[in-house]
């Protein structure tokens, strides 16, 4: 393959592959746009180019396979396969005209103020927490805090102590202000490493590390922070369980939590909430555990592509962005403009 052929091949490829070829060969390749990347590749010594040409041939011989592989990523919970839904026809017929920008920009605006009506999943979660542990897995901004406040209210009404933990001090502070306003300042306390404000209040806010320490101290008989009345522990942002450094603290906390205390785990959308629920059931045999999984966004989300020239086009070939088991497709205009950009990022 001569340089011209190589160049033609490279131009036709998504930039991702060019970066892959450049990795370890071209210094700071990730800073280059497509055109400069191709130039740098062509300037490589010939044995390197030969190797790349060989990789290229491999690539072009299996394009089909690659596409299907990436769109059907295997789920990691082999023990609990999802019931496979009946095969639906592909949602986008290739013949239908692509969606237009006007469709996408339709309906922008502010809704009339409405009285607060909890969603179904919120009500279910609140009902369940009265008698069992609950895991809520719902998208960002969908209203998990409402579940927390209702659960706190319930518990406080029966004179139980509640501990609310978050992974971050910043978040603890925000919640402290929010809850103080909602429940009254005398009802809420906050504990940090060096400070205890209103530590005898029925609702205590702290980071998960502090709760873990309290639980250790309690098991060794050092300290009693009204733990015998501890009725509810809320772990916000529970997806931190997977944090490489701090995730272990969530596990310690859950393992050491008193059996009479109910757990409310609030988490952003995760792939295996079912597995988490099964685990909790297995280690807390006397309590049941409800999984409330909510995947639908409360406000529909739409995708746009903004070209550096200022042109605005639809991102995908469907209007709303939704979880798609069958993969997604970019809008033809986005594809065209983006490939233009990839080739000339600095026009």
């Amino acid at each position: 393959m001569n340089d011209n052929d190589l160049q033609r091949e490279l131009v036709s490829l998504p930039i991702k592959y060019l970066h892959r070829f450049a990795k370890g060969r071209i210094h700071r390749h990730f800073r280059l746009g497509k055109r400069r990347l191709i130039d740098s590749i062509l300037a490589l010594p010939s044995d390197q180019k030969l190797a790349i040409a060989h990789d290229l041939e491999q690539l072009s011989s299996i394009p089909k396979k690659r596409a299907t592989e990436s769109s059907t990523a295997p789920r990691q919970t082999p023990l609990h396969p999802r019931p496979s839904s009946p095969k639906k026809p592909h949602p986008h017929k290739p013949t239908s005209p692509p969606i237009g920008l006007q469709d996408l920009l339709e309906g922008i605006g502010v809704p009339e103020p409405k009285p607060f009506v909890p969603d179904d999943w919120q009500r279910k979660a609140v009902e369940a927490i009265a008698h069992s542990d609950v895991i809520v897995s719902a998208p960002t901004g969908s209203g998990k805090t409402f579940v927390a406040t209702e659960a706190i209210q319930q518990a406080m009404a029966t004179n139980q102590t509640v501990i609310y933990t978050s992974p971050l001090k910043a978040l603890s502070n925000t919640k402290y202000m929010e809850f103080s306003q909602y429940f009254g300042a005398d009802q809420v306390g906050i504990l940090t490493g060096d400070r205890r404000d209103n530590a005898q209040a029925p609702l205590l806010i702290m980071t998960t590390e502090i709760l873990r320490n309290i639980l250790y101290d309690a098991t060794s008989g050092d300290l009693d922070l009204r733990l015998h009345t501890l009725g509810l522990v809320i772990l916000d942002e529970s997806q931190y369980l997977a944090d490489p450094e701090r995730g272990v603290v969530w596990e310690e906390t859950l393992i050491l939590c008193p059996t009479q205390t109910r757990l409310l785990l609030l988490s952003a959308s995760i792939g295996n909430p079912q597995e988490l629920a099964e685990w909790l059931i297995s280690i807390r045999p006397t309590t049941s555990c409800h999984l409330i999984q909510h995947t639908k966004r409360s406000v529909p989300l739409r995708g746009l592509y903004l070209h550096p020239t200022g042109q605005l086009v639809p991102l995908l070939d469907s209007r709303d962005i939704q979880q798609q088991r069958k993969g997604y497709r970019f809008h033809p205009e986005t594809k065209r403009l983006f490939s233009e950009y990839e080739f000339k990022p600095y026009h």
Partner: peptide, 29 residues
């Protein structure tokens, strides 16, 4: 009524990572 995500390119962007991220299943923890 509706929210938007606008993708605008920068020199090191892979559209497919975003496409998959917006429409895919979140990872298991």
């Amino acid at each position: 009524f509706v929210g938007f995500v606008v993708v605008t390119p920068s020199p090191y962007i892979d559209l497919h990572v975003l496409g998959k991220g917006l429409t895919g299943q979140p990872e298991s923890i």
